[in-house]
Computed example of a mutant assay.
Amino acid sequence: MESETTPPAAARPLDRWYEAAGVRSGVRRRFHEETEQGRVFFPAALVPYLAHEGLRGLPPERVRELTIRHLYQFLLSTAHLETRVVNSGAERIANGRAGVDLPFADRIDAYKVYCDEGYHSLYSLDLADQIAAVTRVPVPDWDYGGFVARLAEAGRALLPGEPVLAQLLQVVVFETLITAVLNELPNDTTVVTAVRDVTRDHARDEGQHHRFFSAFFHRLWAGLDTSLRARVAHALPPMVHACLTWDTAPVRSSLLLAGVAEPTADAVLRDCYGAAAVQRVHDMGRATVHMCESAGVLDVPGAREAFASHGLVREGA
């Protein structure tokens, strides 16, 4: 019997999953044409290339198609990466194949994450299909296979001989990054309602996933020996960078579909996804870096310098 002074068990991120998770309590978001009210499919400020000088002569209908396909990029990348990257790690944790000593409750929570990610993929593809049916802008056949393959290759190169650890670290990175889309789009009233609602639903679940994977990382890190900690500390910055490196193939494809000449499309990619993306890496990686700092990763000799060299922390910070 617990004494009156026994503190209550700490709340877990997914304690209210059965009541609060989107897959348990959400509704199907329906798209209704609202552009006559001046609403857009994606905020221009969150489309990195829309203001590029090479696109200034595009007719308004082509610009509209670009924003719709940029929305498709977000929705399709969600559908592919949640199932092919995040759920591969969630399944390992759920089935006790992660090589980490975890409470059984953590394995249950990993299954909750697995269910969430499948649902996010479902409603992302569903919304894309609804928008295509109304706008007559087809959903391109983008499968993100190149990005997934490059991510796997980066894991093998950065942590040779540790495929499971590399996979788990990539999942932790993905689930602790903070994207401007999830953070800003739900409150942007210039965007069509269904897009805002789906993004808000997604962001609500991902907030809980962030907490789950941050706690998982602390357990994972605590179980590593000194030599492996050193390898992981130096592998994490390029791993974060790899996760944040845009797959530009869909962008190029979208530009060409809009009638942009190939040399111009290539110039847009160089200008918008090259050195200009450094600030984006720093901003999106802040929460991941904070997690690493709190676990002691940046205390490993040379780790802070490695994070700085990849634009994740400021020199001397």
Rank of each mutant, 00 (worst) to 15 (best):
A9V: 09
R12L: 08
R16V: 06
G26V: 03
G26Q: 02
R28E: 12
T35R: 14
Q37W: 06
Q37Y: 07
R39K: 15
F42G: 00
A45F: 10
L46H: 13
V47P: 00
A51K: 07
G57V: 06
E61Q: 12
R62E: 13
R62D: 10
H70F: 10
L71A: 02
S77V: 04
A79W: 01
V85K: 00
S88D: 05
I93Q: 00
A94I: 02
A98R: 02
P103M: 06
P103F: 05
F104P: 01
D106M: 14
V113D: 01
C115E: 14
C115Q: 11
D116V: 02
D116A: 06
G118Y: 13
Y123Q: 12
A128H: 09
P138I: 09
D141C: 06
A149H: 11
A157Y: 07
L159H: 02
L177S: 00
P186A: 11
T189C: 12
A194L: 07
H218Q: 15
W221Q: 04
L224E: 14
S227M: 12
L236Y: 11
P238N: 13
C243E: 08
T248D: 15
A249C: 03
P250M: 10
A276G: 06
V281N: 04
G285L: 08
H290L: 14
E293Q: 15
P301M: 01
A303W: 01
H310V: 07
G311Q: 09
V313T: 11
A317Q: 10
